[in-house]
């Protein structure tokens, strides 16, 4: 097996007395799409935030291209620009138009004007006519797609998605998932925390079931959804797929 793009070894994270991650090992290959499933509070979001070092990890290590990015004291800006993340609550900058939201980071961090690329991204995700609008003037689904474009404009090597459809009205979920399908066909390396089981089953290369701060079981989606081996996975899937 070639070297993984991203590698986690024994990652631990606590908030006060609350141990949220209790030793996570995970390898993600370039171009792979990994879905994290599990109940709320199982540590999916925290795991994503520990990958891009938004939360410093307590123990263990995160490797990106064989470089330990979790080493204390590392310049995190240069790490974060390589790892895009999209949040459940969009978090667009409300005082900027959609286009300005997208152009800010390339201009300030990469020191270049990416207007042409940004316009192409807006067109590709069906938002060309909304570029000049402010976040307030966009629907939730449109805002979330702008957030994806904003992350993509930094040309990240990996994309993390933290339950990006969880805050959306049901009829808007589809347009956001469509964006993920497009990225999938382009070979983007992606890790998704999601409650969309149907989507995970359709597109994931691998599904990881998390519970109590560890990855309880992982495998290809057919195996996890059709023949889970561990009792906790079976119980979880019974409750969500009913």
């Amino acid at each position: 097996m070639p070297d993984p793009k991203l590698s986690l070894r024994g990652v631990q994270k606590s908030f006060g007395d609350n141990a949220v991650l209790r030793g996570i090992d995970l390898d993600v290959a370039a171009g792979e799409m990994v879905c994290l499933i599990g109940a709320s509070g199982s540590g999916k979001s925290t795991l994503l935030r520990c990958i891009n070092q938004l939360e410093p990890i307590d123990d263990g290590a995160v490797w990106l291209d064989r470089i330990d990015i979790s080493e204390p004291g590392r310049d995190l800006s240069s790490v974060r620009r390589r790892i895009g993340i999209v949040f459940q609550s969009y978090n667009l900058f409300p005082h900027m138009s959609a286009l300005e939201n997208v152009l800010l980071a390339p201009r300030r961090v990469l020191q270049r004007d990416s207007t042409a690329e940004a316009e192409a991204l807006f067109a590709r995700f069906g938002l060309a006519e909304h570029m000049r609008k402010y976040p307030d003037q966009l629907s939730g689904g449109q805002q979330q797609r702008v957030a994806v474009i904003r992350a993509l404009a930094m040309q990240p090597e990996i994309m993390l998605f933290d339950e990006i459809t969880a805050a959306l009205d049901p009829e808007l979920v589809g347009e956001v998932l469509q964006v993920l399908r497009q990225l999938r066909t382009e070979g983007m390396t992606m890790i998704l925390a999601t409650h969309e089981m149907g989507f995970a089953r359709e597109l994931a290369d691998r599904v990881c079931f998390m519970d109590g701060g560890v990855i309880v079981e992982q495998g290809p989606p057919e195996q996890i959804f059709s023949a889970p081996q561990v009792a906790r996975t079976q119980a979880f899937l019974r409750s969500v797929l009913r």
Partner: peptide, 28 residues
Amino acid sequence: ASQRNAAICLGLSERDTMRYVILPQAVR
């Protein structure tokens, strides 16, 4: 805090985050 998080996750420095994301909203 989610605004600051979104900015630094894009690789913006603390300084740019204050100047381009936090301050304009705060002043308004």
